[in-house]
Structures are given as structure tokens and as C-alpha cells.
Amino acid sequence: GDDDDEAGSGTEGGGESVELTLAYVTTAQHPYGQAIDFFKQEVERASGGRITINTRPSYPQPEPQLLADVRGGSVDMATISTAIWDSAGINAFQALQAPLLVSNYQLESQILEGEIGQAMAESASETAGDVTVLTIHEGGLRKPVGAKNALDSVASFRGTKIRAPQSKVLAAGLQALGAEADPLPLPEVYQALKNGTVDGMEANLGLIATNKYYEVARFVTGNVNLWPFPTALVINNQVMERLSEEDQQILRDAAAKVPARSIEIVSTGSDLPQQLVNCGVQFVTATPAEVQGLQARAEQAYTSLSQDETTGRFLQQIQDLKEDAQAPAAPPPFPTSRTGSCELAG
């Protein structure tokens, strides 16, 4: 708007030191935080310490507000879950989280590190007009988590209320599966699972462990990955334009390395599944017929999501890529019995 020229006019030359603030809503230990820490170190290393990234985890307001704040320029940089972008009218990332489409990390890294990811970033930047998406990185595939019943078939999803972050694409996905999305704020989810306000949620194992959802929601469908949970690393355009060509390139190069690192972070095997079982989680397995049933319902979502031209184009590209790709090796089975007492509590 008209006020843009009131912004600070300090132009940094190539040799000057630069400080950038990068905010995000999760803790520093979350996969988002770990990937951002990697980015920070890459930038600081490549610039010989000339560019400092001040990371600010646990942003005091929700992601839609953070997106508005980085667009307005009150924060320089941010990483913001792709799921919430469509509420701001930016649909470039929707295809990434269409239900049961990007269901393994191998496919996801091909997308994020390849042309599709690049095109999505460019499309989002263009629609927004005030931020540049530097890269997309991953936070961990989401599985259905049921409080009182397992969510492993079309029948089990029917008529349920499932907590999901504020997102049109996730809501469309759940609707296709026969459920209704409830964008309950995260602090209220534990109680809601306990008293039945919601029947389940979409979550990754880390989230279940951190917030002790295993106390109130026992059933995790191990072999169904609903969608990935990517996040877009962005920089405000005015901030970007104030940087020298060289510094801009340093940021872009460092950002390009983040997706691979993020996939590494989330896909590295850990004893978390066993620990969750020790804390009462029961991993259930959907039968091949049940999985097929869910996939058939998911296809309906692809049709409805494709009404948006951008989403439709990216959906098609991802489907083509998935068809050409080899099915990944089956992941190791989830543990079924306790090996000790629950150590996640306290």
C-alpha cells in the first residue's frame, strides 16, 4: 500500500552485516525447529557469520496471524504450515495435502526437491505478492488417531468429528473420508478427546507424545498416512529486496538444502513407536480392502479440490509422479506389545 515507502531504507551492501528474525509457532525441538536451526547454521556458515538469523520459536499468536505478520513485515522471515495458507486465499500448497496422496517420504522428497516444489513456491509467492517462499520442508506424516475407536476404514470415519488445524484442504480431505473437521485450538484438544467433543485427530507420533494424547486417544492407524505436514519458509519481499544479490543467493542456496534435511529429521527411525506402545497406544493396521476403500473416497476429494485451477494442476503433476515412481519398501511393522513402563510422562 501507500505506507510501504515508510519502511526502513537502510540498504545493506555486500559486505555489511545483516540480522534477520525468523519466527515460527512450534518449539525449537519440533522438526520445524530442527530444520530451521539447520538453515540458520547453513546461512551463517556460508556468509562467514555476516548474516545472522535470530530464530524465534513459540510465536505468541497462531499461524494465520504469523502469515499476516510476515506479509506485513513485522517479522522478517517465518516458516508457516502449508495447511493454513489456503485460508488466506493462497492455494498453491493444497495439492501437497490432498488425502492419501503424498503418503510416503520418498515421494515427498521428490516433490519438495524437484520442479513441483519449486513451482508451488513460485506460485504462492506470486499470489501473495508480498512474500517470497524460499523452500518447503516437512514436519512429519499424519496418521488417523482415534479416541474411543480406531479410524481405519470408511465405516469408522463416517459421522465422526476429527480435529485438524485450520485448513480448507484438510477439511475437504476429512469430508471426503466421511468425517467432519473441527479446527479446535491445540491447547483444547486433550480435553476434547477426553470428553468426546472430537472423536479423533490427525497427528504424527511426535505430537501424540509431546501433548500426552496417548492418555486419551489410544488408537493410531499405523499403515495409513493421511497427508504430510509441510511448512513453507518465507521472507518478506521488502526485506529480501534490501539484501544484496549475494546475500539473497546465500539464503536461496541454504534454503534449497532444507527439504532433504527435514525429511531426514522426520524419517529417521526412533524408539518413539515402542515408547508410545508402552504408554498405552495401540497401533492398528487397516486391511488392504479398507485402505482401498479410503483411497476411493479420497479420489472424490481430488475432484472437488481440482475445481481450483492451481490445485488441479499440481494434483495432476503429483499423481503422474506417483504413478511413475516405484512403490517404496514397506516400512517396518509397528510394535504391538509393551516392553516396559511409560517413560514419556513427567
Binding site: 510501504d4 515508510e6 494465520p64 496471524q65 506485513g72 513485515g73 491447547p187 483444547e188
Partner: peptide, 24 residues
């Protein structure tokens, strides 16, 4: 603590009061 975004104070207030959360 300068910020170029002149709307930020207003959207922040509105956000905290219930626009983007804060149902509690």
C-alpha cells in the same frame, strides 16, 4: 522496536481478541 507494518498493532490486537484464535 520498529516494524514497517503499520497495520500490525491493529491486526495483533484483533487477532488476540478472537480473530485468529483465543477462544478461551
Amino acid at each position: 522496536y520498529p516494524s514497517p507494518d503499520l497495520i500490525a498493532p491493529f491486526s495483533t490486537t484483533q487477532g488476540a481478541m478472537g480473530l485468529t484464535g483465543g477462544g478461551e
